[in-house]
């Protein structure tokens, strides 16, 4: 029987003293495709960062592949696609080079790329449909293509458990479809996938389980919901749209403590 990839018990995270996540119990089994959903500020990005160890837990315990996080070193089993508006830095980098950095989990120091490394990089680029752009500079790609490069980088490490933070945010429809087919391919190979999404869009067909966050807690865990149900009042966001900003402003309750002035109430 395969070991459980991810198990979080009683997880809590505080940022700057303010609790952001509380009492999170989440177990993800091998081969599951889980979508973390919820309104802005509900803690879904914090949760995925806690699961990758980027945010330390203030309480609770995290186990990856049956190993407590402090003793976990099998990083080649994990893939991570950060939430990112661009993939560029101060110096040009080719698509191939960025994807090749995903192989570092499996490479030893001071060794050149092996044949297996090169095959994995080429495979990853083919899965996201960018094999013909390998030699191009990454800054010459559109935002959606850059997002696909970041996914290819995670795929190059051949992870068993893949975390994606808002992979479809700000990505146009053709690129969303390309992303969906890449993730579908990965799912068919037996990978476990956890992703954060504000809205599933074309990904809806792949998602087998939805976890909806509200105010730092898990409000729903089960079969995927249609986009409209996620915005149910139970989950913290009333039915709201971009063009009725007025009533959204009034109806939304902010859970941040109200601070006006130190002399208030005297």
């Amino acid at each position: 029987m395969p070991v459980t990839p991810l198990s979080l018990t009683g997880g809590a995270v505080a940022i700057g003293g303010r609790p952001v996540l509380r009492g999170i119990d989440l177990v993800v089994e091998t081969g599951e495709f889980v979508a973390l959903m919820g309104a802005n500020g509900s803690g879904k990005t914090t949760l995925i960062r806690a699961m990758t160890g980027l945010r330390p837990l203030t309480a609770g315990s995290l186990e990856l592949f049956g190993t407590p996080f402090d003793r976990f070193h099998d990083w080649q089993r994990i893939g991570y696609v950060p939430q990112r508006t661009g993939a560029t830095s101060g110096v040009p980098a080719s698509v191939w080079e960025v994807v090749a950095s995903g192989r570092l989990t499996r490479r030893r120091l001071l060794r050149p790329l092996s044949r297996a490394d090169r095959t994995a990089i080429t495979d990853a680029l083919e899965i996201v449909g960018l094999a013909d752009r390998a030699r191009d500079g990454i800054s010459h790609l559109s935002g959606g293509q850059q997002q696909r490069v970041l996914i290819a980088r995670a795929l190059a490490g051949e992870p068993e458990l893949l975390f994606l933070d808002e992979p479809t945010a700000g990505v146009d429809l053709p690129n969303q479809l390309a992303l969906t087919s890449a993730l579908g391919e990965l799912k068919s190979r037996g990978a476990t996938i956890v992703l954060v999404a504000h809205e599933l869009g074309p990904l809806a067909d792949l998602v087998a389980r939805a976890v909806v966050m509200r105010d730092g807690r898990i409000a729903y865990d089960g079969a995927p919901l249609a986009d409209h149900q996620v915005h149910d009042p139970r989950f913290g966001e009333t039915h709201s749209h971009h063009h009725c900003a007025d009533d959204r402003g009034r109806s939304r309750h902010d859970h941040a403590p109200h601070v006006a002035s130190p002399l208030e109430g005297r």
Binding site: G53, W75, S89, S101
Partner: peptide
């Protein structure tokens, strides 16, 4: 290169 390009990714890659 990986660390300078994307610190968070590098951290999850175990660097």
């Amino acid at each position: 290169f990986a660390v300078a390009q994307d610190e968070e990714f590098a951290r999850v890659a175990g660097l």
